[in-house]
Design a protein around this nucleic acid. Sequence first.
DNA 1: TATTGTTATACTCTATAACTATA
DNA 2: TATAGTTATAGAGTATAACAATA
Lengths: 177, 177
Amino acid sequence: MSKTDSAAAPAPEGLMLPVPGVDYGLLDGLLGYALRRAQNALYLDFHRATAAWDVSPQRFAALVLIARNPGMRQGLLGQAMGLHRSGALRLTDWLTAQGWAERRDAPDDARAWGLHLTAAGKRRLAQLEAAVAAHDRTLLAGLGEQGPALKAALDRLAWVATAQSTTPQNKPRRQTP
Amino acid sequence: MSKTDSAAAPAPEGLMLPVPGVDYGLLDGLLGYALRRAQNALYLDFHRATAAWDVSPQRFAALVLIARNPGMRQGLLGQAMGLHRSGALRLTDWLTAQGWAERRDAPDDARAWGLHLTAAGKRRLAQLEAAVAAHDRTLLAGLGEQGPALKAALDRLAWVATAQSTTPQNKPRRQTP
DNA sequence: TATTGTTATACTCTATAACTATA
DNA sequence: TATAGTTATAGAGTATAACAATA
């Protein structure tokens, strides 16, 4: 279909690090802004680490999820990644267009697909996982002793922010509003 | 003049929290994925905290920057926020369309603008800052003792990731402080 | 009637490239 | 020649809505 199937430069944004001479006001003290800066830097760094394949973090995550949960539905993939069904569809379309994933009939539900990685997808994932894991180890090494604590604090932060914004019931999944 | 000038629902994405029964493989152990999850949760939570005004984190940051650096150029605004010139243009266009910012001639360079907040922009910023600061305090309170350490670790992480990806000779835009 | 996936469409964000007007 | 900003366009990502097939 499209000729931009394989690699289309997923729009790497510019750096958000503090510019000397600019007063950031309360932004410099906000947890949320620090998080955004860090995520921006990591996003760019992820691209560098996986430049040979040009796969976005999201597509990489989808590969991992399908590999670890063979036969999972598109809807579940979207749910796990915070995507709408239509987004999960486009993501799956892209993966199948690469020849890395395929849709098979779900055994228990004729409406649904079961997602599986192809042999090529498994090989590509193995390469990506090696690069990403090495990349993450380098980051952790750069953080020193703070690393593991940071990871734990981030997990907790995601939970805290969610607990705030959702009603007292623990309902992380999205329901019809 | 679009009719969606004031509020256009900046696409709040779904939650990315772990779905029970789904195996996330190495994603669960990655610093980068934890960061993405946390940022996703905070993004949604920011929207909740500022729902009364419907201003995105980026637009809020632009307001703060202009307020603290009156007369700053569009280009510098973009640089501080990791945006291309065209992105800084559209951001400024939006702010001026709201009546919150205005372009004035730069005294020293006839090519450039100096950006300033209007009185309405200052009032709106004051409201937003109060809401955002309260929101951030709530997050910190939820984190307890980990909070300040997390903030420091995030600042460091952004620096570590950038130091890695920045090649010695290729200077992206600016130098590290 | 509800759910799974699809199709079609629209909107946001960001980037590139060519253009102007200054420097 | 280089820079600040603009214009036009393209691409990725996400959402909504209506639809078909199945539960």
